[in-house]
Each structure stands twice: as C-alpha cells, then as structure tokens.
C-alpha cells in the first residue's frame, strides 16, 4: 500500500446538513454508548468531559426578531493534512506514533495503549476533537456489562477521539470477506453510530472516493488542489458545502451543508471583503 491518498483506496467521510440538524443531541448520545465513552457524575464543565461528537450552537449574531441559530455537530474531522498527504495536524506531532493516518481508509487512528498522555495532539488540533482522560472511567454499578466488546475502553491519562466507528468498518470488512468480496464494502454495511441515530437524517456517511455513494454525490469533492491555496485538496464543488477552517489546509473529511449563507460563513475566518469574493467560488472550474 503506497502512501497515496488519491488512489482507489477508501476515503471515508461525512457530510452534515446543518439545515436538517435540530441540535437534539442524539448523535452525541449514540456515540457515547457505542464507543464506551466514559462520563462523570457532574458533566457541567465541558472543558474536561469527553464528547467525541459535540454539537456547537451557532447564531447569526442579530437581535430579535432577526435572530437565527444553527447547530453544528463536530466529530473528529479525520484530516488528510496539508495537500491531503496524510500528515494530519495531530498525527505528525505525536511523539510515540500513537495515532496514524490510515491510507487505506483515510481514517485517523488513536491507540490507547500506545498513548502516554503528552497531549501535544490536543494542542495541534484546531477543532478540539481530541479529549484527555483526566480520570479513570467509572461505570455505574452493572453498566460494565453493557459496554461494547468491539471498542476498547480507555484508561486514565491518555487521549481519545472519534474513530468514525472504526469497529463497524472492521465488522463490515469481515462480512465482505465472508461473502468473498473483500474489496467492496457496501455503503449500508459501514455507517457510523451518529449517522444511524440522527432522527432527521442530517448526517450522510460513506466513501468520498466512490461516485456511487451518497456522500460523494452531495459533496462532489474536487480531487485537484485549490488553485488559491495548494494545501487545500478535496474542496467541495457544491457551493452549499463547506469544511471547517478549510483555509488552514487541514483537509477534513467532514463536510457541512447549508443553504444559509451566514452559516457557511462561520465555517472559516475571512478578512474584510474576502467572503464576498470567494463565496461563490468552489473547486476548480474546469471540473465543475
């Protein structure tokens, strides 16, 4: 397997329709129970409690009656890094190789038994997608029996994050092996917990490299680098689709969709006048 992110390997990604998201938090709950995410008795301090999937509230900043709000669910963005070469902000800084970039799936791993808790990856991640286990997990009496055996529970002193429910990919691959077609995992066989739990179908998950997958059809990722910033690859050719902090060149695999311009504008920072110039520019025109 070569270190090439543009071959026919999978490139799993997600697009979240922010116009459909009601902020109900089902994705957060399903994620926590699917992935054995530990919790504390008092979860009011959001800066030391763990939520692989976190829903942020956005507002347009206007006062009544023009106030509008939107909710933005934020899993790990599974960044491809500058130029989409797999050097994600967190992967490149980990001193002990406890996190790596899977060139076969585009998924950023986190190995709990390898991590020694230096937290450099957390500093490097602009999305705050990485969480530290400040405490040992404590499950209420009897709840241990309900933990998923497919996801390894974590210990104190290490970092964890969303894995795109990788254990579901592993299960789907096993199934594909059994049915003799190991190279083609069906779209419906690998879906993350948050995707399946969302009551308004706001989340679409699949292979960004596969034109048959819904996520590809919505996002229409541009395989060529952005002519304005060669670090940016995979920009959506759908003008309603954006990524968070795309200009940093982190190349996330989580896309967001909204009809509302003010929502799209909150995806990144723009100097005065910049937004108006680029809001309608999406991807290289020759492939539009």
């Amino acid at each position: 397997m070569t270190q090439d992110n543009h071959n026919n390997a999978y490139k799993f990604g997600m697009v979240i329709d922010l116009d459909k998201c009601t902020g109900c938090g089902s994705c957060m709950v399903s994620c926590m129970s699917e992935n054995n995410v530990p919790f504390k008795e008092d979860e009011s301090n959001k800066r030391d409690s763990i939520t692989w999937m976190r829903v942020y509230k956005l507002t347009n900043g206007k006062s009544f009656p023009d106030t509008e709000i939107a909710y933005l669910p934020r899993p790990c963005q599974h960044c491809g890094g500058e130029g989409d070469h797999g050097h994600s902000p967190c992967v490149s800084v980990c001193p002990a190789t406890a996190t790596d970039y899977g060139y076969d799936t585009g998924i950023v791993s986190q190995i709990y038994t390898r991590c020694f808790g230096c937290r450099y990856c957390m500093g490097a991640c602009p999305y705050h997608a990485r969480y530290f286990n400040w405490w040992d997990p404590k499950w209420p009496e009897g709840m241990e029996k309900y933990l998923s055996p497919d996801v390894s529970p974590r210990m104190r002193g290490i970092v964890e994050k969303c894995s795109f429910c990788y254990h579901r990919y592993q299960a789907a691959r096993d199934k594909a092996y059994y049915h003799g077609d190991k190279d083609h995992i069906k779209e419906e066989d690998y879906q993350t917990a948050c995707t399946t739990a969302c009551p308004s179908n706001a989340i679409t998950f699949g292979d960004l490299n596969n034109p048959a997958h819904k996520v590809h059809q919505i996002v229409k990722p541009d395989p060529h680098p952005d002519p304005r910033n060669h670090h940016v690859v995979g920009k959506s050719r759908n003008p309603k689709v954006f990524r968070l902090l795309e200009r940093l060149g982190t190349n996330p695999k989580v896309y967001y969709l909204s009809e509302r311009e003010w929502v799209r504008k909150q995806g990144d920072h723009y100097l005065e006048g910049e937004w108006d110039k680029i809001k309608n520019h999406h991807g290289t025109t020759s492939h539009g």
């Binding site: 397997m1 790596d100 076969d104 799936t105 791993s109 190995i111 390898r114 996801v151 390894s152 990788y166």
Partner: peptide
C-alpha cells in the same frame, strides 16, 4: 505477505 505492516487500526480497536 502484503507489502505493508498495516496501519494501527488494522489490528487495533
């Protein structure tokens, strides 16, 4: 056998 030792998640969960 495969030319690559595999990425972490190949064998980790």
């Amino acid at each position: 056998e495969t030319g690559h030792q595999g990425y972490c998640f190949q064998c980790h969960k």
